[in-house]
Nucleic acid binder design. Structure first.
Ligand SMILES: NC(=O)c1ccc[n+]([C@@H]2O[C@H](COP(=O)([O-])OP(=O)(O)OC[C@H]3O[C@@H](n4cnc5c(N)ncnc54)[C@H](O)[C@@H]3O)[C@@H](O)[C@H]2O)c1
Ligand SMILES: NC(=O)c1ccc[n+]([C@@H]2O[C@H](COP(=O)([O-])OP(=O)(O)OC[C@H]3O[C@@H](n4cnc5c(N)ncnc54)[C@H](O)[C@@H]3O)[C@@H](O)[C@H]2O)c1
Lengths: 209, 209
DNA sequence: TAATCATTGCTCAATGTTTCACAAAAGATT
DNA sequence: AATCTTTTGTGAAACATTGAGCAATGATTA
């Protein structure tokens, strides 16, 4: 429990900064200024410095930041200095795409189990992992120390599945269904609502001209 | 070209209100108060009224809103009283999932074309539509009146593909690649960054306790 | 027709976020 | 050792969003 409330926008930008720094490391760059980061990710340099200032002083005045040092701090701040295990519920089109995506593992996220209600899906393989029945939820969460639940079932099943995940001990939910979910205050919920994203585009296309 | 700047958060909520109202219509509900909407989607009633107030007066004091009337206004505000045509670039795991998703058509979005660079993908079918080579981009955008480009190629190809989309006349981009894209000021860009979403979860899991 | 009721729409206050601008600090130069 | 240059870190100002409270007002009831 920390003193400060960190704006969510700040956290999202930290994630993007960290990815940019990773690129710089790959490119062999040793040092970087807030202004270069700002240009690289499309924000202002003051914003970069303010975001970092929530967590400490990581740079050297007149010089900038050591890329690897700052990257290390950001990964630690983001909780990416460890591995997290997630469970995917719903092995449909979207759930499968997520399960097979390599990019998550590269950032410290493992998929520990994939569950589905349909006999058509149960027993099929997605990469290394076999789709299992819903009944395995509690056991898999327990034994694999799963903290994150990813919900990719139809909207009609989303709340029910979410309740079960929370009951089974999951602490955070990433919801892809177009449904407003109710979760207790101690569970972290994020919604990735693709329709909303498209509709923001159509609003802007419509409104701005 | 309107007087006001509408907060993006407001637009996203309007999309969610409209979906909730759609449910109410299905359930045969005729009238609704800001307080009921607020409970239904998890915001405050003041927020609901404030969001609507940007666009006019849609309710009756002492009574509430007529569900169908308000729904109609929201759909119009969101630009969903017409159809939009989109093109998907990258027929991989994510692009395929999006292409096959029925929910977009239900809200007025058609997928007019799906392109890929790989010979393995070109010629395969995703539902009704055949995956075509990148060279078809300009022609398809022109002839199908496509305004929205959906980018689901690897990060390394994302900027290049985006440049081509804009050159071919697309006015809005929905980017799923983990890359900060540069677009001209008259093009609308939204990023759906799934890794960032997971990392916000890990930050909160890590930080809040 | 007047009184009552419920709920909107709006004003103003509070809170939160971004930008500005500059003093402070560290390395480079003379 | 003094001066110059650069870029951080930050307090204050500007801007944006959310929340609280209530006057206005249409519908309902008496
Ligand atoms: N595919 C997309 O591009 C896309 C876009 C936007 C939103 N979404 C949302 O994501 C979710 C998944 O979409 P999809 O396209 O993968 O759908 P899908 O139909 O391909 O997959 C859904 C899967 O969930 C399983 N399922 C159904 N009820 C279940 C239950 N109670 N418990 C466990 N599994 C259950 C089904 O067997 C199926 O395998 C939906 O809510 C959808 O609205 C998807
Ligand atoms: N799948 C996921 O769950 C997921 C999650 C987060 C982010 N993403 C991002 O979404 C994007 C797509 O992911 P995916 O899992 O579908 O990858 P994928 O490898 O399955 O698909 C990528 C497709 O793009 C095609 N492609 C490559 N270069 C191209 C080019 N220049 N022009 C046209 N097509 C080209 C490839 O042939 C392939 O079919 C990536 O940027 C990825 O980082 C995906």
């Amino acid at each position: 429990m920390k003193a400060y409330k960190i704006p969510e926008a700040t956290v999202m930008r930290l994630s993007i900064y960290s990815r940019y720094l990773h690129q710089l490391i790959d490119d062999g760059v040793k040092s970087v200024s807030s202004d270069e980061i700002a240009h690289g990710v499309g924000v202002s340099s003051a914003q970069v410095r303010k975001d970092l200032a929530y967590f400490g002083e990581f740079g050297t005045r007149g010089v900038g930041y050591k890329v690897e040092v700052l990257y290390g701090h950001l990964m630690k701040i983001l909780g990416l200095d460890r591995r997290w295990c997630a469970i995917i519920i719903g092995a449909g089109k979207l759930g499968s795409a997520l399960a097979l995506y390599q990019g998550f593992a590269a950032r410290g996220f493992n998929v520990g189990a994939i569950l589905d209600a349909s006999p058509d899906k149960i027993g099929t393989k997605l990469g290394e992992i076999e789709v299992e029945p819903l009944e395995m939820m509690a056991q898999r969460i327990e034994e694999k120390n799963i903290t994150i639940g990813i919900v990719t079932v139809p909207a009609s099943a989303a709340q029910e599945v979410t309740d079960k995940l929370i009951e089974s001990g999951v602490k955070a939910i990433l919801n892809f269904s177009p449904r407003v979910l109710k979760v207790p205050g101690n569970v972290i919920l994020r919604n990735v609502d693709l329709s909303v994203n498209l509709e923001v585009l159509s609003f802007n296309l419509n409104y701005l001209k």
